[in-house]
Write a protein that binds this DNA or RNA. Sequence first.
DNA 1: TTTTGCATTAACAAAATTATTAAACAACAT
DNA 2: ATGTTGTTTAATAATTTTGTTAATGCAAAA
Lengths: 214, 214
Amino acid sequence: MFNTKTMDNKEKQNKEYQILIAAEQEFLTKGYDGARTTSIAKAAGVTHAMLHYYFRTKEQLFERIVDEKFATMSHSMFAIMGDPSLPIIERIKGGISAHFDFIAENPLLPRFIINEIVTRPEHYEVLYKRISLIIETIFHDLQFEVNRAAERGEMERVDVKMILISIMSMNIFTFLAYPFMEPLMGELMADRDKFLAARKAENIETIMKRIKKQ
Amino acid sequence: MFNTKTMDNKEKQNKEYQILIAAEQEFLTKGYDGARTTSIAKAAGVTHAMLHYYFRTKEQLFERIVDEKFATMSHSMFAIMGDPSLPIIERIKGGISAHFDFIAENPLLPRFIINEIVTRPEHYEVLYKRISLIIETIFHDLQFEVNRAAERGEMERVDVKMILISIMSMNIFTFLAYPFMEPLMGELMADRDKFLAARKAENIETIMKRIKKQ
DNA sequence: TTTTGCATTAACAAAATTATTAAACAACAT
DNA sequence: ATGTTGTTTAATAATTTTGTTAATGCAAAA
């Protein structure tokens, strides 16, 4: 969603903003190639000339959405970091949970980002640097804590990078592949919230068992 | 890849087959919307009128690729089942490894399937039934073995469905998000094979710890 | 009130993409 | 040789989608 704090009500109701909202939905669900500027304009309740008036080209409108979604992705990754004031085990537990919740609120984000990077490598440079920075921050801090805890015999001395990948894999895949899991889960899937709660618990349990001292 | 056993050399060199090969590559990397029939024709070394002569429409050509890729996905899922003659722990270990290797040989498959299902729900019905069948087979058999082993105290009594999701999550995400991991992994990523071997080992280790008796 | 600047509309142009057709060609059986 | 069948090419049609423009409105500043 777009920065609502710096937008007053008038702005929220104006056409430019409506176009952004509609574009976000269209690009997230259909990707750049599948998105249609006419369809965005229609959903926003404006003529498609208006769309071009405000954003010039489909490409420029898309860039606006990409920027915003990359920022959201950064936030989601920071969520894994957890609360540094907690003991390391609790901290990782909380990080997994927070990351899961973040993706749950942005379920279309992972597919969008993955597709963008794979099919439009020109975006890669900017994202690469952004991710590197995040990873440096999270990784060094966490690995330091993990090493200390391992020395105290509280947990295994694990490679935090590997653990981070496993956490992201399990959390993100839940939403990427949600449509496939219906036939797999049967009854449990009937209630989406129930299923997600069970998956979150399972992901936490899996990582906890991976890092706990045997 | 297309059934090469029933195709002699003459057929392999013919235009229809070349179009299929080119279409597979184009659709897998760019998706339906991003793919261009002219680009497929060019890559196949035929005029684009030839493409329409053989396959009538882009849609029909695409269906051919979808059918083939859905079949490949089925095979990948069966790989998780492992060798039923082995003890359950070894069997699951082998299943994870085989599944990982299968995806490694078809790294574009997961993104293609996920995008198809999300953006073209009309395919969902056929896939739903196909997955259901596979899952029934794999799940019942594995859960039965797991329950027996759990009674003998050899492992935890886990929900096999949850374990299957975790395995697929970690194996598939490795390839879905491969481009993102470069900044995360640094040196290790320099050698792709080394990284994949490390990831496979980590996925196996994670699941083993999850199911082993504490 | 005039001017200025942005917003809006409708019509249209341009480009890209998919699809068709008519005619030429080749292989081959009769 | 002739007719039949399927293949190939070049040209072009049709459609879809993106982008532009000129005219008009409208509200606030000068």
